[in-house]
């Protein structure tokens, strides 16, 4: 599941961006110092491979539905966590830009949900532990399923937390969890099964490609723990900083500005640009006696409590209508500007 810009608040989006960017920077350093040059093209081409593999669908037995490979766990098994994380992140960047999967701000969340959990949690703590030193096909399948389920459960939970913390959705936390987790349990089992099928195929053909020793990426080893701690610090820091400026209520930014400037609201209707415009509007309004005017006036003088969208809304029947109307007009103007610009461009 790709998280989307439209469901995010800047604080959550920003914190997850910082977390993902930090992890990318850390992994980039690790890959540079620890891995052979030959991994440079390999990681890139495997990213393209994941992309291609995701486009090939398979049918899930006894359900009639079809699935596709996620690839996070597969990459971790083949490349180790650091290179795998970078590779998944690169695939997600392409998807965000070309297929509008999620969007640019949500990229941070998506990289984290779909990259961090499989590479730094599911792979070292579940897959490696269960496979052990002697990988057999049965163990590999079991480990892959357990790891994929873990990774996807955490990823889905991440989506839930990010969505709920952002506050754009009205879905209650518990309902959302009940919706997301079971679906991803099924997806996880399928992902694990398919990952195991691919890994064991490769293992039979070229065993040297599937490292059997945990190497530098064993569970609880310092590097992985380092990533975890670095991430935590980063997320807490950024989250804290952003929320200091923007409270978690929907109009947080305005509230924060009110705090900073010491005013309850942005310049009210009688001052500044609003005041001037009030003069102008008396002359320009072509619907002055429209029936909703009265209700508009009731809301006019009353000082609005800051931030509470609902309270505002109740008393602002008229303003809503004029808002909608104004929106239509600005939309028309925006399109007209576009049209004119294009025209000018073509004639130039």
């Amino acid at each position: 599941m790709h998280m989307a810009d439209a469901l995010l608040s800047p604080a959550v989006g920003g914190a997850m961006w910082a977390a993902s960017a930090g992890t990318i920077a850390y992994c980039a350093r690790k890959v540079r110092t620890d891995l052979a040059d030959s991994r440079v093209p390999l990681m890139g081409v495997l990213g393209a491979f994941i992309f291609a593999a995701q486009m090939i669908n398979f049918s899930i037995p006894a359900t009639g539905s079809s699935g596709h490979l996620g690839g996070g766990l597969l990459l971790s098994v083949l490349l180790g966590p650091y290179a795998a994380f970078l590779t998944i992140a690169s695939v997600l960047v392409i998807q965000a830009l070309f297929f509008a999967d999620g969007g640019l701000l949500a990229l941070g969340c998506n990289i984290f949900n779909l990259g961090f959990f499989p590479a730094f949690i599911a792979y070292p703590f579940v897959y490696r532990q269960l496979v052990g030193a002697h990988q057999t096909r049965a163990r590999m399948t079991m480990a892959a399923i357990a790891a994929a389920v873990t990774g996807l459960q955490l990823g889905a939970f991440g989506v839930v937390l990010e969505t709920v913390a952002s506050g754009q959705s009205s879905l209650p936390f518990s309902t959302f969890v009940v919706m997301m987790q079971p679906i991803h349990l099924a997806i996880g089992v399928v992902e694990g099964f398919v990952t195991a099928a691919v890994v064991s195929f490769v293992y039979r053909a070229r065993p040297e490609l599937v490292p059997s020793s945990p190497g530098a990426c064993s569970a609880g080893s310092r590097p992985v723990r380092g990533v975890l701690l670095a991430f935590l610090a980063m997320a807490v820091l950024t989250g804290g900083m952003v929320s200091w400026f923007a409270s978690k209520d929907p109009d947080g930014l305005e509230w924060a500005i009110g705090k900073v400037t010491g005013k309850g609201e942005l310049p009210g209707p009688t001052q500044g640009i609003h005041g001037t415009l009030a003069e102008v509007q008396r002359k320009t309004s072509f619907l002055p006696d429209y029936s909703f005017r009265k209700s508009g006036e009731t809301g006019k003088e009353g000082a609005q409590p800051a931030g509470q969208g609902k309270d505002k809304g109740e008393s602002r029947v008229g303003t809503s209508v004029s808002g909608v109307l104004g929106a239509c007009i600005t939309l028309a103007v925006a399109l007209l500007v576009g049209f004119l610009l294009k025209k000018r461009h073509q004639s130039a």
């Binding site: 509007q281 004029s322 808002g323 007009i329 600005t330």
Partner: peptide, 19 residues
């Protein structure tokens, strides 16, 4: 545009309702 509701303003201009 973040702090000035342009839609609202344009709407006010034509309907005569202040925000």
């Amino acid at each position: 545009l973040r702090f000035l509701n342009l839609s609202q303003l344009v709407g006010s201009l034509v309907t005569g309702i202040s925000p």
